[in-house]
Design a protein around this nucleic acid. Structure first.
Length: 210
DNA sequence: CATCGGATGTTCT
DNA sequence: GAACATCCGATGT
């Protein structure tokens, strides 16, 4: 497994969002390793994207990390409770990034279970196991990724990074993004990427009507 | 399985 | 004071 280079994150945001499907998110802390395979992402493309925190070039204390170098983590709190993690893309002063929306648990299941449900993995119901990491707030909680510790974190470090995975067999599908109904025309952009038919994707796409 | 509403607190107007 | 890139439990089918 090879850690993804900074050059990977400097590519166009839509390309990074798609290429991240199948890669592995890895956190190492206190001798413990947590690994998840990325199965769902969303692109947020700065000034021109009404759904992005940086729409119109808006620069605040919260989103400052998005204006920095590619390959860093932008972590923010949503609805007062949930911590969500993004990868900053492109380059300085291009406030774009990719939200990690869901992963498949690969290693560190025991600590994920403790953080999510305060009980050991073998005590979890099948529903709880499915819901360990199938959403942006859920994977943030399962990995213990908080804004205080990880916002602005360099993903080239050993403690939190993304590595190559065996993504050859994965078929990537797209859809509109989730949870951005108030964002005008931007809500229709097909900037959500996910592994087709994967059990840990946060929502199933609606059945085709036509 | 689908839908609905409350939780919770930070951010920005 | 309102909005918010969400989650969970309750309720009805």
């Amino acid at each position: 497994m090879q850690k993804l280079s900074r050059a990977f994150f400097q590519q166009p945001t839509l390309k990074v969002a798609e290429a991240l499907i199948g890669k592995q998110l890895i956190k190492q802390h206190d001798g413990e390793t947590i690994v998840g395979k990325i199965v769902e992402t969303e692109a947020y493309i700065g000034p021109e994207d009404r759904a992005a925190h940086t729409y119109g070039g808006r620069r605040t204390k919260r989103n400052e990390t998005m204006f920095g170098e590619a390959g860093h983590a932008y972590v923010y709190i949503i609805y007062g409770i949930h911590h969500c993690i993004n990868c900053v893309t492109v380059g300085p002063n291009a406030p774009e990034g990719v939200l990690l929306r869901a992963v498949e648990p690969i290693a560190g299941l025991e600590s994920m279970a403790q953080r999510r449900f305060q009980r050991s993995y073998e005590m979890l119901t099948t529903a709880q196991r499915r819901q360990l990491t199938n959403g942006p707030g859920k994977l943030g909680q399962a990995f213990g990724i908080t804004r205080d510790k990880y916002n602005g974190h360099d993903l080239q470090s050993e403690s939190l990074y993304i590595s190559d995975g065996d993504d050859a067999a994965i078929s990537v599908a797209t859809s509109p993004r989730v949870g951005i109904d108030a964002s005008g025309e931007a809500k229709h952009y097909p900037w959500r990427f996910f592994a087709k038919d994967h059990a840990y994707v946060s929502k199933r796409p609606k059945a085709k009507a036509d």
